[in-house]
């Protein structure tokens, strides 16, 4: 038996005869992913990866961290990131790599005993690539979560103009200290930007408040007053009213209204706007 070098062994496996391993790989992965990735896209992704892998092995790559693997790593990272963004699970992402092992398995049965060590070595390399995939996947998901949390903070606190000189923040969802602080700053800046002297903080969509949040709201209202604007809080639910009283938070001097409509009416009256229903007009 002639001693062959590692690279040739591995190459031998991957370029086994006339069988289109890449095509079999694509078929295997497509079967496990269903129709959620376009078949043309999958075909392109995996064939590129396959080419790069063969190339890397030919150059003597021994594991995932080899210099020669940089192209493979770049392609895999791209693939993992895409899967993570498209909402695939980590297993569904890693299967793209591991499926190649399964494709190679049947060839062992027909091949010679020499091929077994080569297969095991290749399997180890593929395991490394699989782990690399999962790491990239996790990192991408973490980035996504961080980005979404920031977007949520931005999205969830729109300041809307209801009338000339009247702005409102409709708050929806659970308020925490950080979010309330963002709202506070945005609302106060909006007073300056729009030249509004009336602001309405509508908490109809807020299920509960704690002491800190209530304090932040209170501070916002006092800060607005320092700047020369008046705030009204509307949409306080019975539960929140009970909490505020039970917590002993001083809400004295804060104007509250049951609904946003009532608060708007008050804000308009305060800014000197009269609403008159014309007689004879249908209501």
């Amino acid at each position: 038996m002639v001693k062959r070098d590692n690279a040739a062994d591995l190459m031998g496996l991957l370029s086994n005869g006339d069988r289109d391993l890449a095509a079999m790989w694509v078929a295997e992965v497509a079967g496990s992913l269903g129709s959620r990735v376009g078949s043309a896209e999958l075909d392109r992704e995996l064939r590129e990866l396959y080419e790069a892998l063969v190339q890397a092995l030919r150059q003597g790559a021994v594991d995932v961290h080899s210099e020669e693997m940089s192209e493979v790593r770049a392609l895999l990272a791209e693939l993992s990131r895409n899967r993570a963004r498209q909402g695939f699970s980590p297993s569904e992402t890693a299967i793209s790599v591991f499926a190649l092992k399964r494709v190679l398995e049947p060839m062992l049965e027909n091949g010679s005993a020499d091929e077994i060590p080569a297969y095991l070595r290749l399997a180890r390399i593929l395991d490394g690539l699989g782990l690399f995939t999962i790491e990239t996947y996790t990192r991408t998901r973490d980035e996504l979560i961080t980005a979404q949390a920031e977007q949520l903070l931005e999205l969830s606190t729109p300041v809307v103009r209801l009338w000339d000189g009247v702005i409102a923040v409709p708050l929806v969802g659970t308020l925490d200290s950080a979010r309330t602080q963002v709202v506070m700053e945005k609302l106060l800046q909006a007073l300056v930007d729009t030249g509004s002297e009336q602001a309405i903080i509508d908490i109809t969509g807020v299920p509960a408040v704690d002491t800190q949040v209530a304090q932040h709201l209170l501070k916002t209202i006092v800060a607005a007053r320092l700047m020369g604007a008046e705030c009204t809080v509307s949409g306080i639910s019975p539960q929140i009213a009970q909490t505020i009283v039970a917590l002993g938070i001083e809400f004295d001097g804060i104007v509250t209204k049951a609904s946003l409509a009532d608060a708007l009416k008050l804000a308009l009256r305060r800014s000197g706007v009269d609403m008159v229903a014309h007689t004879g007009t249908r209501r």
Binding site: E185, V222, A223, L226, M227
Partner: peptide, 12 residues
């Protein structure tokens, strides 16, 4: 007149 938001928050 003209108190900045950051100043108002800080004073509170």
């Amino acid at each position: 007149v003209g108190m900045r938001p950051a100043v108002a928050i800080t004073l509170v």
